[in-house]
Amino acid sequence: MPKQVVPDAARQRRRRTKQGTVLSHRLIVETALRMLREHGSAGLSARRLGLALGTDASTVYRYFRGMDELTLAIADELISAAMADWRATGDWLADLRDLGLRIHAAYLTHPQAAVLTANRVSGRAHEVASDEAILGALRTAGFPDPSAARIYHAFIDQTLAFAALDAASLALPAAAREADEGVWQATYAKLPAETHPHIAATADLLVARMNRSAYPAALDMLLASARAELAALQGE
């Protein structure tokens, strides 16, 4: 017989844990995020989560059917942080840029969790709300539905792909990350123009840019393309 899962509206224990805290859905997710930040995905298990909460693993399964369901809840929590206090302004370009930057930043706040969840589709409330906001901005701007769906697809996949890429870098051990970042100065900047003329010509620019995320530039390029498409559709 499958274990009973506590309904969303009642996910709170009446008894306190050994640490004196009242167990809840949110507390489990927040504790899992902390464990991911400190130990990475390899350090997150029901047993270790139970120990961190002052209870046993079986209690965790009263709130989640399994660790994969917890992973989806973590993904939705990241989107929730991105959407907190966000309000549409009616300027579709500004709204989409703000949403993209918010989502990207929320994932980078928890790099280990981002690596674990950026490729997942949770179908949970905050994810759905963000998708509704993105599509709403596009459709309200005047994009026909096929264009809105295509641009939404590119927008969200680009945002999450950069989040995963940048988070993977942040999740590296500090020594490895610093070594990677140093390659641009130590190797690329020293390549001779005789053998690598194009790298040599842009070396200073590469050193200045390549250790920063390209997401804001990529986002602006996507939105500029969308703006040009809308202008063409409207005969401007």
Rank of each mutant, 00 (worst) to 15 (best):
M1Y: 11
A9E: 01
R14E: 13
R16K: 15
T17R: 09
H25D: 12
R34H: 10
H39N: 15
S41Q: 15
A42D: 15
R48L: 12
G50H: 09
G54L: 03
T55F: 08
D68K: 14
L70V: 08
A73G: 04
M83W: 04
A84H: 14
D85M: 00
D85H: 11
A88T: 01
T89H: 03
G90Q: 06
G90N: 08
G90F: 09
G90W: 02
G90E: 06
D91W: 12
D95N: 12
D95H: 09
L96G: 07
L96M: 04
D98T: 14
T117P: 05
T117S: 02
A118L: 05
N119W: 13
R120H: 01
R124N: 06
E127M: 03
D131P: 03
L135Y: 10
L135R: 12
L138N: 11
R139Q: 06
P144R: 06
A149P: 00
A154N: 10
Q158N: 04
T159Y: 08
A161V: 01
L172W: 03
P173R: 02
A174Q: 14
R177A: 08
E178Y: 00
W184H: 03
Q185K: 13
Q185V: 00
K190E: 02
K190R: 15
E194M: 08
P197H: 09
P197L: 03
H198S: 05
A200S: 10
T202F: 01
A208E: 11
S213D: 15
P216E: 08
P216Q: 12
A217M: 11
L219P: 12
M221G: 10
A224T: 11
A231L: 13
Q234T: 12
